[in-house]
Computed example of a mutant assay.
Amino acid sequence: MQPATRHVYLNLDALRGVAAICVMLYHFSPFLADGKVLPSSYLAVDLFFLLSGFVIAHAYDRKIEAGMGFGSFLLVRLIRLYPLYLAGTLLGAFYLLIKNTLMPGDYMPMSDIAMMLTTGMLFIPLVGNAYHTIFPLNPASWSLFFELLVNIAYVLLFFALSKRVLSALVAGSLALLIVAAVFSGTLDFGMTGATIASGLPRVAFSFFLGVLICRSMAQGGTGFLQSGYWAEMALLLTLVIFAIAPAGGGARAGYDLICVVLLFPVMVTVGAAAPTRPGLAKLFGWLGRISYPIYIIHTPMLMIIAGAGKAASIDPFANHPWFGIAMAGAVIVIADVATRIY
């Protein structure tokens, strides 16, 4: 059998890259401004899950139908994800070891660091109340944990995932997601031990909706997107969504649900169907390549760079936005180098 020509979704690469940069800037907010920068950027995780479902279905549906087994699929995914994940985890451990040396007043027992490193390297979440996130050495890793869970579910359930079953999965996950959003007042959950259960419908809804969109688009019906500035509009809408900060309570939960349930699926459909302008192809491809490195190393790099600033008697909080801009630039450069070399 001749392998099919692989379609490269450069617009989706650009969406993922812009979203990763927005998450980084959101987490760097204390070093950039007095308030939150791009305050709704935590929704980028839901966009990542949706994109993942679409791309996984596109890349692996035919391969699994042709005989690719569970072990081969999982190995390919780990080869793709684990090296940079490991690098981020080791950077987090390095930060704590250096902090113990330079700031003995905040000393953390070596046994605690060893436990966080061991569990982190094995993708085991820490759900105790003593931890602010289920992966303390690299807080952004929480979404990667859920990504692997839903990837495993996809391959194990693959031959049962008809469109009817997918629709039922999406509908059931949505119902649970709405309940979780109403109780929490937001969709910003899943990263702590107290909210880890709520992370399951969050990833399941977006991922399996992405699979459903991919399979549905194979039947056509998006020809009207072949002309116009649809891809650029989707990118602009991403920034607008992340920049808006509705009031708390019901408004916040409603906004989050509208974005995840309605706007993100439209953006992914548009990005997948619309052509990429030749002049933007290289930029979009580059954004896609650096998206995962930026996301998975930016939180330990934040701790290391901010700690280095303090060690050099530079108050990173008193020197915004320049300190934050320098941090973001450094992470982008490191992500680019990691993509090309590591």
Rank of each mutant, 00 (worst) to 15 (best):
2 Q>L: 08
6 R>A: 11
16 R>P: 12
21 I>R: 02
22 C>L: 14
25 L>W: 04
25 L>S: 00
29 S>E: 02
35 G>N: 11
38 L>P: 11
41 S>P: 07
44 A>V: 14
47 L>R: 10
49 F>C: 02
49 F>P: 13
54 F>T: 04
58 H>I: 05
62 R>I: 01
63 K>R: 15
73 F>L: 02
80 R>H: 14
94 F>C: 13
97 L>D: 10
101 T>V: 09
111 S>N: 10
117 L>W: 09
117 L>E: 02
124 I>R: 05
132 H>P: 00
137 L>A: 06
138 N>S: 15
141 S>L: 09
141 S>Q: 15
142 W>S: 07
143 S>W: 14
143 S>Y: 15
145 F>M: 09
149 L>D: 00
154 Y>C: 05
156 L>W: 10
161 L>W: 14
163 K>Q: 11
167 S>K: 06
170 V>T: 12
173 S>W: 06
181 A>F: 08
181 A>Y: 07
183 F>G: 00
191 M>R: 11
196 I>R: 09
201 P>T: 06
202 R>M: 05
209 L>K: 03
219 Q>Y: 06
223 G>V: 06
227 S>C: 01
231 A>I: 04
234 A>R: 03
234 A>K: 11
234 A>F: 13
245 A>I: 03
246 P>H: 11
252 R>N: 14
252 R>Q: 15
254 G>F: 06
254 G>I: 08
256 D>Y: 09
258 I>N: 03
260 V>W: 13
261 V>W: 03
263 L>T: 11
264 F>M: 14
268 V>E: 11
271 G>Q: 07
271 G>D: 12
272 A>E: 04
273 A>C: 05
274 A>N: 07
283 L>F: 08
284 F>A: 03
287 L>C: 10
293 P>L: 00
304 I>Q: 04
305 I>S: 05
307 G>C: 06
309 G>F: 08
317 F>G: 09
319 N>C: 03
320 H>L: 04
320 H>Q: 11
324 G>C: 02
326 A>C: 14
327 M>N: 05
339 T>Y: 12
